[in-house]
Design a protein around this nucleic acid. Structure first.
Lengths: 338, 338
DNA sequence: GACAGTCATCGAACCGGTTCGATGATGGGA
DNA sequence: TCCCATCATCGAACCGGTTCGATGACTGTC
C-alpha cells in the first residue's frame, strides 16, 4: 500500500509513479494509464506524513481558538466552521489548538513541531504574547484582530471603533441625548481585548463629537448578565433612551429586560450595535446594526495566510472591514419623555 | 535544527539523542544533561511529520463535523471545543474535517492519507455511509450517536428515547392529557437523524403507555421557526397544555411565543425536554429538562478512541448516557381549562 | 551511418525522525 | 588473570514519499 508497491505492480520505478501523480515531469500516456489502473485497483493514497516530510509542507493550517472554558460565542463558532470550509476549498486541513489557560503545550506543539504551514490566531489582545512567539518562530500567521502597534504583520479585523461611532451618530441624528454602550465583559476590557477597547473609544469619541452624553457598562457574555445589566442601566440612568452594543451573547437577556419593563422598541427605546446579522435578525424587532461577517473574515484570513505561505517574502497585508450599518427596525426618533 | 545537529553539538550519535528524549533505552545522566543543554540552547523540537512517519502514529485525531452550511448548534460547538481540550490533555491534536455536501474530499483525505490515528464522527445518521467507509478502511473511530444496527462498533450517545419518555411520563403524572413534541427539522427527521427519530419513538411510545394524546411537529433549528411553530400548535391543537422538545435552537422563539400569547409557565403551559443545561437555565423560567452533556460526551469519546488506538483488537465499547431529568420550574400541574 | 537532441525512465540521495543489532568499556567473581 | 555481565553508545536500516542527475532508446538531420 505504498508507492513502492504501486511501482512494482506497474513495472516502473518509484520516481516514475511520483512523477505520474504530480505531473512535475512528463510521463508517457501509456505508463500513466497503467499506474492509474494499479492505483485504482489497490485504492492507494500517498501517506501524508511522508509527503510532508519530503516536501517540507504539511498542507495544514493551525487555528488557535480560545479554550473551551471561555465559552465560544456564536460568532466564533461560525468563524471556525468557515475557516475549515475555506481551507478545504484549497485542499488544506485545519488543526485546532486551544490556547490560554493551561493549554499552551498545544500551542507550542503547533508552533515548533512544524505540524502546520501557518496559523490563524483568533481573539487577539492589544498586547499579545502569541503574536511575538509566532513572529519569533518565523511561522506565517494571520491574526483575527490587530495588536495595538501591528507593525509589519498580517491581520483581518472589523473596524469596531468606526462602526460603533456610526451607530452613535445615527442615534444622535434621531435626537437621542443620553446613550449607553453595553460592552463585553469587564475581564475582556481589562485584558485589553481589541473589540471591547476600540468600541469604547469609538463610542466615547462619537458621543463627544455629537455633544451627547455617553455612559459605558461592561456585561458578561451571558443572557442573565444582559438582563441584570439592562435593569441596572435603567435604574442608574433613567434618562438613557438608546443603547449600542457589541455583546451578542447578552442579547437575549436585554430582550427580556425590555419586555419586562414594557418598553417598546423603537418607540420607547432604541437599540443598535455591531452584531452578526443572524442575531440582529432574530431580535424583536430586527436590529439596526453593522454585521460581524465571520464567514467573509474566515475566507479572507485563509486567503491571506495561503498567500503568505506561498511567498514568504510577500509584503504584509491586512484588511479592516467596515460593513454597512443595516437599517432595520430597532432605532427611532427620541420621544420627549413623560 | 534537526536531531543530527543536536547530536553533533552534543558529541553523540543521533540515536543517543533519540533515546535520551524518549527514555526508551537508558542513557547516562551526564549525556542526558549535555543533550538537554544543547536542546535548550537551540530551542530544538522534533519534526512532527518525521516522527509520525517513523512511528506510524500521528498523535492526531480527526473530528468530522457537519459542514458550515448546516449551522452548528450551540451544543455541537461546545462539543468541538471539549474534544479539543480532552485531546490536548492527552497530548493529541485535533484535525477538523467538514463532511457532507461537496466537502467529501476533505473526509477522504483524512481517511486515506494516514493523517490521523483515529476519528470522531459527529452527527451520525441511522444509516451512515461514513461509518461503513471508516470500517472498511480499518481506521479506528468513535461515533457520536449510533446507527440503527451498531454491531461491533464504538460509540457514545444520549438515550433520547428513554429521556423523552421520562419527560412525557412526568407530564402525565402532572395531569397533562394533550402534549406535543417539538422536534428538530423535517429534513433531519427525513434523513434519519438518530436523536430526531428516537425522540419521536420515545415520545409516542410513552404517550401511548400513559394513555394521553401526543402530537409531533418538526421545527427548523432557528428562533423564528420556534415562534411560528408554537403558534401553529396553539391554533391547531388548543387543548395542548404541555410541550416536550429537543430543539435547542428554536427555544428563543418558543419563549417569545409564550410571552406573546400571555401564557405563564408553568401555570398555563408546561415545557420540558432534552437540552443543554446552560440553555435550560437561561430560559424563563428555568426549564425542567435532561441535560445533553456535551463536555462529558467529548471526554468519553476521546478516551474510547485513544483506548481503541492503543489496542486495535480491543472489544468495541459504547456508552449510552442517561442524564437525570433535572426539576426546575417549567412544569406544573395541569389546571382545568377555562 | 554517425551525431545531436528529445523523451521517458531509472537509481540514488534526501527529508528527520525511530529502532534494532552490534560493539567497546567497565566492573565483579572465580 | 581471565571471563562474562552489564551498561552506554554507535551505525545502519527503515518509514514513504520527492527530486535531481544520469542513462538509454528513439528520432531527425546532414
Amino acid at each position: 500500500m505504498n508507492i513502492g508497491e504501486i511501482a512494482k505492480r506497474a513495472g516502473v520505478s518509484r520516481s516514475t509513479v511520483s512523477y505520474a501523480l504530480s505531473g512535475k515531469r512528463p510521463v508517457s500516456a501509456r505508463t500513466v494509464r497503467r499506474i492509474n489502473d494499479v492505483i485504482a485497483e489497490l485504492g492507494y493514497r500517498p501517506n501524508a506524513s511522508a509527503r510532508a516530510l519530503a516536501e517540507g509542507k504539511t498542507r495544514t493550517i493551525g487555528l488557535v481558538i480560545p479554550p473551551a472554558s471561555a465559552r465560544l460565542t456564536d460568532a466564533q463558532l461560525g468563524f471556525v466552521a468557515s475557516v475549515v470550509e475555506a481551507a478545504a476549498a484549497h485542499d488544506h486541513d485545519v488543526l485546532l489548538s486551544p490556547s490560554g489557560g493551561d493549554h499552551d503545550r498545544s500551542f507550542e506543539r503547533i508552533v515548533t513541531g512544524r505540524r502546520v504551514d501557518g496559523v490563524i490566531l483568533m481573539e487577539i489582545l492589544l498586547e499579545d504574547a502569541r503574536v511575538d512567539r509566532l513572529t519569533g518562530a518565523g511561522l506565517p500567521f494571520v491574526a483575527i484582530g490587530h495588536v495595538e502597534h501591528p507593525g509589519a504583520s498580517w491581520w483581518v479585523d472589523v473596524d469596531y471603533a468606526t462602526l460603533i461611532a456610526r451607530c452613535v451618530r445615527h442615534l444622535a441624528d434621531l435626537g437621542h441625548e443620553h446613550v449607553v454602550l453595553i460592552n463585553r465583559s469587564e475581564h475582556l476590557v481589562a485584558a485589553g481585548y481589541g473589540p471591547a477597547v476600540r468600541a469604547t473609544a469609538g463610542f466615547l469619541g462619537a458621543a463627544g463629537e455629537c455633544g451627547i452624553t455617553g455612559h459605558t457598562v461592561s456585561c458578561a457574555d451571558e443572557p442573565a448578565a444582559g438582563l441584570e445589566c439592562f435593569e441596572r442601566i435603567r435604574a442608574r440612568w433613567p434618562e438613557v433612551t438608546a443603547a449600542v452594543t457589541i455583546n451578542e451573547a447578552a442579547l437575549p437577556g436585554v430582550q427580556r429586560a425590555l419586555d419586562r419593563a414594557g418598553l417598546d422598541v423603537p418607540r420607547d427605546f432604541s437599540l443598535t450595535g455591531v452584531l452578526a446579522d443572524r442575531l440582529a435578525e432574530d431580535f424583536h424587532p430586527p436590529l439596526t446594526a453593522a454585521d460581524v461577517p465571520a464567514g467573509e473574515m474566515a475566507r479572507l484570513a485563509v486567503d491571506l495566510l495561503l498567500e503568505q505561505i506561498g511567498d514568504r517574502s510577500a509584503e504584509p497585508r491586512h484588511a479592516l472591514l467596515e460593513p454597512a450599518v443595516t437599517l432595520r427596525s430597532s432605532t427611532g426618533a427620541r420621544r420627549s419623555r413623560k
